[in-house]
Simulated assay, not measured.
Amino acid sequence: MKRTILAISGGGFSEEKRAFIDDYLLKIPRKKESLKIAFIGTASDDAQGYIDKFYKAFKAERPTHLSIKDFTSPNIQDIVNALDIVYVGGGNTQYMLHTWRQTEFDTVLKKAYQAGVILAGISAGAMCWFETCYSDNDQGKYEVFKGLGLLQGSLCPHYNHEECRAAFDHWASAQYNGIVYTLADNENVHFINEKLVAKIST
């Protein structure tokens, strides 16, 4: 079963009316019929405005969303496995991963990935798939924490932002000896079976 992850640094449906990277994502499954795509807005605490933008952007497909309360549904694994694409939004990465682990939704996503469901996400939803995350917490201080570990290394989105770049570079050069991916807001990376196959600039 082919395993696919698309990590999006910036842009996408929340910032652009017709985002190239979203069109690119929809072409990955190569299906003629409309796609089953679900938005996960945990990192923004299920912000309704964010969810509304998702539905508007993907109205030509078969869009749905999964809120935090849905994660403990008894049939959640079947629901996620039936999707073509999972699209994870941006926001607070630590909060998102903590919530997923508390509800065991992290395991659901890992099993869906192994079953061939395409995983995609922007910002927090891009870095979460990697072994190690380095990002700001609720107090605005940068710290290291574990990602889901589906991909080796660590990813820094928004690398064109001076504060983000300086903090990540300092940590990576002084404390981290793994693979690093640094992406400006218009850069994205596509992995198949844990191998980088494309870097897309938009």
Rank of each mutant, 00 (worst) to 15 (best):
K2T: 13
G11T: 01
G12Q: 10
K17R: 12
R18F: 04
R18W: 00
A19E: 11
L25D: 02
I28T: 05
K32M: 02
E33D: 15
S34Q: 11
I37G: 07
A38I: 08
A38G: 06
A38H: 06
I40G: 07
T42R: 01
D45E: 14
Q48V: 13
G49K: 08
I51Y: 02
D52I: 12
F54R: 09
Y55R: 01
F58A: 07
K59S: 14
H65L: 02
H65N: 15
S67P: 00
I68A: 11
K69S: 14
N75Q: 14
N75P: 00
I76C: 06
Q77T: 09
N81T: 06
L83Q: 13
I85R: 11
I85N: 09
V86I: 15
V88Q: 12
G90E: 06
G90P: 02
N92L: 10
Q94E: 15
Y95C: 00
H98Y: 08
T99H: 01
F105L: 13
T107R: 11
V108S: 03
K110A: 08
K111T: 07
Q114D: 13
V117R: 05
V117Y: 04
I118T: 05
G121E: 11
M127V: 12
W129R: 04
E131Y: 03
S135G: 02
S135K: 09
G140W: 08
K141R: 12
G153Q: 10
C156T: 08
Y159C: 08
E162G: 00
C164P: 01
A167D: 12
F168D: 09
D169F: 07
W171D: 02
S173E: 14
A174T: 15
A174E: 15
Q175S: 13
Q175Y: 13
V180I: 14
A184F: 03
A184K: 14
D185E: 14
N186R: 09
N186L: 10
E187I: 00
N188V: 01
N188I: 02
F191E: 08
F191Y: 15
I192A: 06
L196N: 04
A198H: 13
K199G: 04
T202Q: 12
